[in-house]
Design a protein around this nucleic acid. Structure first.
Length: 485
RNA sequence: GGGGAUGUGGGGUAGCCUGGUUAGCCUAUGAGGUUUGGGACCUUAUGACCCCGGUUCAAAUCCGGGCAUCCCCA
């Protein structure tokens, strides 16, 4: 049959590599991930296909957090201004981004209430009441929540919205050593979930002194990479030391009978933003692709026509698959071709094309999205086929993503090379004077001349032997630089 | 932070410069029918000029303000 001229706008009109920004906008709309037409700037409606995936992502994160001893909470969305103001650098950093609630009905509040931009100042207020003794430590809490930030930079659906969905974990420890171990545990959690299950490669960097979380002593953040060569900050974990403990007066009686301030850490994986990376990293020119574990649905059965015979057979197969996979039957009135394209756009891992031929021959025509491969199997092999795809498809996507990520890290030894490498969409590795305050001037030079930010140092110690690419002084660190959003 | 562009049914658009019939087209949607192995077809129906103000006999069109979206640069 003749290929139809694309004028109905159902397919993607650009390649992911060619024009990533258009590709992303299109896929959000055409795969029905989010509707941007909600009439408040910077906010969007999350549609079922993104919600179903994000629900699964939440489950994976929460399961691991709970396994490691975190307990779940739901904190209030509103935080009094006085709480927010307690820690000086925290308030300074977040105040410009706060949405304020000033009234209830016609009553004007004496004190403004913040729609939480993050919940340190809510959790630690309560830590003060809950923590009494070293027996209470470590105190490991988390919540899944939506938070609000009045972003002034260009907002983008999922990636940077004024309301986003995340998990924030807050922990209190008896010693700095314990706190640092927590930070390491958070990084391990990120790898276990985001890399191993969601299939997203990243590097954990320690951020330079000038780029820490407001109120943190040390900040560690995972940078993932989009196809356009820009990095996206994914989960970050922070060593807050005792600053917040002091202003919220969170003390415990230690074994030696003395009152001591707790050491606090916090960790924040943003589900909506990780979802953006899942879409960006795994998607292709036909649409979405998902690792099995977080696919909104697993199998679509497409009856070639909607005859009773075929629809009944589809139901029978669904029954047979049972709890092994989530199955949808597409008995819409679309033509088969349109259904095929639709489910490829949606990124369903397995599609079963069911026609009279298969019925007669007791065969099934199966299509797997990770490889875009169609084949015929005997009907009795269905379950083992699904099992195989379940095991393989996440791994395939991960392998592909890891390879691309690895190839995008490029070493340079001067600013000119850096410009070239960054222009080609790479993350650049180079030697640099210092990630303490005195290196900030060199970072500014790079930002101005090349348009990239110093992301930080890799946690794996890397040998330094040369000079800083900017000032030429003896290098103190190997740093990574990249364009960001 | 700076600059540029845009806003017309659910989606994509024509018309705007030069104000003047019933706002045209594609698609989607409802109904009826024919179809169905890679984006079907016929008949028919529904549906729009971002908001507020100004100019004018007359505004989608010109002017001012607001809101929103997209792109580029730092």
């Amino acid at each position: 049959m003749e290929k139809k001229v694309e004028k109905d706008n159902k397919g993607l009109t650009v390649g992911k590599k060619k024009d990533f920004s258009t590709w992303f906008s299109e896929i959000v709309q055409k795969a029905e991930l989010g509707d941007l037409r909600y009439n408040v700037k910077g906010f969007l409606v999350f549609q079922p296909w993104s919600v179903l995936c994000m629900e699964k992502m939440y489950k994976h994160f929460e399961k691991v957090l709970q396994k490691k001893g975190h307990e779940p909470y739901f904190f209030p969305t509103l935080i009094p201004e006085s709480n927010l103001k307690k820690e000086a650098s925290h308030v300074q950093g977040f105040t410009p981004e706060v949405f304020w609630v000033t009234q209830g009905g016609d009553d004007v509040f004496e004190e403004r209430l913040a729609l939480r931009p993050t919940s340190e100042t809510a959790f630690y207020q309560m830590f003060n009441l809950w923590i009494r003794s070293y027996n209470d430590l470590p105190f490991k809490a988390y919540q899944r929540a939506n938070v609000f930030r009045y972003e002034t930079k260009a907002t983008r659906p999922f990636l940077r919205s004024r309301e986003f969905h995340w998990i924030e974990a807050h922990c209190a420890h008896a010693t700095e050593g314990d706190a640092m171990k927590q930070v390491e545990e958070d990084m391990e959690t990120t790898k276990e979930v985001m890399h191993d299950i969601f299939g997203l490669p990243f590097i954990f960097f320690e951020r330079p002194a000038w780029d820490r979380f407001h109120g943190a002593h040390r900040t560690f953040a995972a940078d993932a990479l989009n196809p356009d060569g820009r990095v996206v900050q994914q989960p970050s974990t922070h060593l807050l030391k005792q600053d917040f403990a002091k202003v919220f007066d969170v003390k415990f009686k230690d074994k030696d009978g003395k009152d001591k301030f707790v050491w606090i850490t916090c960790y924040g994986p943003a589900m909506s933003r990780i979802f953006a990376s899942v879409v960006s990293v795994h998607g292709d020119d036909k649409g979405l692709r998902f690792p099995w574990e977080i696919a909104p649905r697993h199998v679509a059965i497409v009856p070639i026509d909607n005859s009773k015979e075929l629809v009944d057979k589809a139901k029978e197969l669904k029954e047979k698959i049972g709890d092994f996979a989530e199955v949808v039957i597409d008995s819409s009135n679309k033509t088969p071709g349109e259904k095929f394209n639709h489910w490829e756009m949606k990124g369903i891992p397995v599609r079963i094309d069911l026609g009279k031929k298969e019925l007669k021959e007791k065969k099934l025509c199966v299509f797997r999205r990770d490889l875009n491969k169609k084949e015929f199997i005997a009907e009795k092999e269905l379950m083992s086929y699904l099992e195989k795809v379940k095991n393989e498809c996440g791994k395939n996507l991960l392998k592909e993503a890891d390879q691309i990520f690895k190839d995008r890290i490029v070493n340079v030894s001067n600013v000119r090379e850096m410009k070239k490498a960054v222009g080609a969409g790479n993350i650049v590795r180079c030697e640099f004077c210092s990630i303490d305050r005195d290196g900030e001037r060199c970072a500014e030079v790079i930002e101005k001349e090349v348009g990239v930010k110093v992301r930080g140092t890799n946690l794996k110690k890397e040998a330094v032997k040369g000079k800083c690419v900017v000032c030429g002084k003896k290098a103190g660190n190997v740093v990574y630089v990249a364009r960001d959003y």
